[in-house]
Amino acid sequence: MGLFKKNPFGHILFLKKWLIRVMGLFTHQRYKGFNKLEIEGSDVIRSLPETGVLFVSNHQTYFADVVAMFHVFNASLSGREDSIKNIGYLWNPKLNIYYVAAKETMGKSLLTKILAYAGSISIERTWRAEGKNVKRQVKMSDITNIGTALKDGWVITFPQGTTTPWKPLRKGTAHIIKKYKPVVVPVVIDGFRRSFDKKGLYIKKKGILQSMVIKPPLEIDYENESVDAIIEKLEYAIEQHPSFLKVIPMEELKAYEADHKNRRWRPNKAKTPVGE
Rank of each mutant, 00 (worst) to 15 (best):
N58D: 05
E130G: 10
G275R: 15
E235Y: 07
K167E: 04
K94P: 09
N74L: 03
S76M: 00
L48I: 00
A255N: 14
T61Q: 06
K178R: 12
L54G: 05
E225D: 06
S243D: 12
H241F: 03
G200T: 00
E276R: 15
Y256H: 09
R136D: 02
L218T: 05
D228H: 15
I20L: 14
E130Q: 12
G33Y: 03
K178H: 08
K233W: 09
E40M: 13
V155P: 08
S42V: 03
P165Y: 04
V188Y: 10
L54I: 03
K108E: 08
W265E: 10
M106V: 06
V138W: 13
K113V: 01
R128Y: 15
L54Y: 00
I114E: 02
I143G: 05
A237P: 13
S141H: 02
V183E: 09
Y62Q: 11
N35V: 02
V213W: 14
A258N: 13
F196S: 00
E104L: 04
K205T: 00
V247K: 15
R266K: 14
K94N: 06
R80E: 07
K17C: 03
N145V: 04
R194K: 12
M23V: 14
I177Y: 06
I143L: 08
I123M: 08
E251T: 10
D259L: 09
A64S: 07
W166P: 13
I87V: 13
G153I: 02
L90T: 06
G172M: 02
I114K: 08
K204Q: 01
K139E: 07
K269M: 09
I248N: 08
Y222H: 15
S76T: 04
D152P: 12
G33R: 05
M1T: 12
E124D: 13
E223H: 10
L253G: 06
G41I: 00
R80Q: 14
Q60L: 02
S109G: 03
N262T: 09
K215F: 03
L13W: 04
F196R: 01
S57I: 04
H260L: 01
E252L: 10
F70C: 07
G41Q: 03
F158W: 08
K178S: 06
T173I: 00
T163F: 06
F34C: 11
P267F: 05
W154H: 03
T173V: 08
I87Y: 13
Y222F: 15
T157Y: 11
P242D: 01
L209H: 14
T61R: 09
K178P: 13
M69W: 13
Y98I: 01
K108R: 12
K139D: 12
T112D: 01
G200E: 01
K269E: 09
I189S: 09
K132D: 12
N268R: 09
I189E: 05
K171D: 10
L209Q: 08
L253A: 03
A118Y: 13
K135V: 13
K269A: 11
Y236S: 06
G119P: 08
K135Q: 13
R125I: 00
I203T: 05
V188W: 10
G119N: 03
G161D: 00
Q60S: 05
G200M: 02
E235C: 05
F70V: 10
V155W: 03
V213K: 15
G119A: 01
